[in-house]
Design a protein around this nucleic acid. Sequence first.
DNA 1: TTGCCAACCAACCTTTTGGTTGGGTAACTT
DNA 2: AAGTTACCCAACCAAAAGGTTGGTTGGCAA
Lengths: 198, 198
Amino acid sequence: MPRDASATRAKLIAAAREEFAECGIGGARVERIAQQAGVNKERIYGHFGSKEKLFEAVLAQALEEHTQTLGSPCGDIGEYVGRIYDFHSRNPQVLRLMLWEALHYGEQPLPDEERRAEHYVHKTAAFAQTLGLPPGRDAAVALLMAIGLAAWPLAVPQLTRTLAGGQEGVAATVDGAPLRDTLVAFARRMLPAPASSS
Amino acid sequence: MPRDASATRAKLIAAAREEFAECGIGGARVERIAQQAGVNKERIYGHFGSKEKLFEAVLAQALEEHTQTLGSPCGDIGEYVGRIYDFHSRNPQVLRLMLWEALHYGEQPLPDEERRAEHYVHKTAAFAQTLGLPPGRDAAVALLMAIGLAAWPLAVPQLTRTLAGGQEGVAATVDGAPLRDTLVAFARRMLPAPASSS
DNA sequence: TTGCCAACCAACCTTTTGGTTGGGTAACTT
DNA sequence: AAGTTACCCAACCAAAAGGTTGGTTGGCAA
């Protein structure tokens, strides 16, 4: 069994991701994470320093994967919203991590808020271009709400269920069309149509 | 100091509401709740049975207030979304409680899921009427997304901040218009216009 | 006045928590 | 071959958690 620090880190992050997504920062148990990773608990502190720092590492990696998988917004806006919806349907952990983070930090700044803000500048720019808008606050809010459109039904499943669910689950058909299609249609209607000329 | 069971219950629920909104179910401390309420910890178990049951009681009351304050959806759809936004801006606890609940229960049914579903039937019906739609899944999804439109920027403040926030906070102006107005405009565009004839 | 019960509380118990420590071990350097 | 560094772990710790218990007391019915 060779020694491999980065492999240990990776195993810890993978285990922590499941645990944090399921239980949040306060609810996660350091012991369980270590056990799931097949690594001693102390390694968490050796490698990451604290439970909260580990959470940050998990989230950073998850968001990295998120942007890499999803790519920049381009082409049809509705289809972009559909892609966001598909991503979160297939990777429920990422959205849950974001929500735990939201509840944990609330209005106070994130530990790496600046990096995150900078990261979103690019996305906003790409989004503005496909929308035919000047990049700015307007485009940023439009992107924010496009993400919200796709994520909201998955973020509050109990509301989605009790309102529109019934026995068919989240992907239930709505008047014959899957929820996804409804969201795509809403997005197209909500967001300004791109200028047809480049 | 007279004995008054219902007053004790009320004090406990009020204290628990703050604590649960801030920390969630797992993060809330029974001791703190009791202390904040000026009541012995044991009373929580005497009156409610468990921490989780107390959470249910808190949420039931919060949602009750929510629907009572907000009323049924009627009149202009955009303005209804604006009202939802205003409510959650002024009462951040309710949305936080809903999100903690969402993360805690996830896809598994709520303890009182049936009552909740039934409760939403009326709202959906009212919403369908103002939209000029037949009450049904279509109207329910439209309502779900109207709520989402208003609540999303407040549900994920870290995203709102890093995307569109800057130094001006959540209520920041967007090209001169407050975020609320943008949401109202989005809602009007997204949702089907009500049939003009009754 | 007396008897009774719901409401109440201080103190306690068990388990679990995040975090630490001191001793070991593979592998690279010199 | 000796020394050094980075990694790893079993065992441990103080603090804090949710929940319980045994006994006390206010207030109403008889």
